[in-house]
């Protein structure tokens, strides 16, 4: 839906210093563009729960991290989210790829569509669903709003359409 260059430029404008990520076939295509930006460092981790803890350390250290993962990784991140966001109260922000939202040809009946949004609600993460290109500006607007309010937030980015 969005090019890596467009996302990388937005992240730089938002002051994101580190993107902590595990790729999927959509958000993974953004990596090279993010790496080309001097102001934003890409931090590759091995599992999504780890991404939230690395982001927590970055935030405590004065950086402005962003977690970039797929919704399947959100589902394995629960304890890390609980600890970072709710125990330590860190207002972390994420862009989360929403697998199969636009197209279930690859995984018919993908249960990600059942559990992703209730999981975000359960973790009390204020999210916006971005499902079409015209919503691009909502990414920056929601990030800014969450930053101003000092609360955690996420963009749920619809995936599944070339």
């Amino acid at each position: 839906m969005f090019t890596g260059e467009k996302i990388a430029e937005l992240l730089e404008q938002l002051g994101v210093t580190h993107v902590v990520t595990v790729p999927d076939s959509t958000i993974g295509r953004w990596q090279s563009a993010i790496e080309e930006r001097a102001a934003t460092r890409l931090v590759r981790v091995c599992r999504e729960g780890e991404a939230w803890q690395v982001a927590a350390g970055l935030y405590l250290g004065g950086a402005t991290p962003l977690v970039l993962i797929q919704c399947t990784g959100l589902l394995e991140s629960g304890d890390a989210i609980r600890n970072a966001i709710h125990d330590f109260g860190l207002p972390l922000f994420a862009i989360i790829g929403y697998r199969s939202y636009l197209n279930q040809d690859t995984i018919p009946g993908d249960t990600c569509l059942i559990f992703t949004e209730p999981t975000l609600d359960a973790w009390r993460i204020d999210y916006r669903l971005v499902s079409e290109p015209a919503q691009f500006d909502e990414i920056g607007a929601h990030r800014a709003a969450c930053g101003d309010a000092g609360v955690p937030g996420a963009i749920l980015l619809a995936e599944g359409k070339a």
Partner: peptide
Amino acid sequence: SMGLGLALA
């Protein structure tokens, strides 16, 4: 992992 984030920041 938290240590890694702090070390980078």
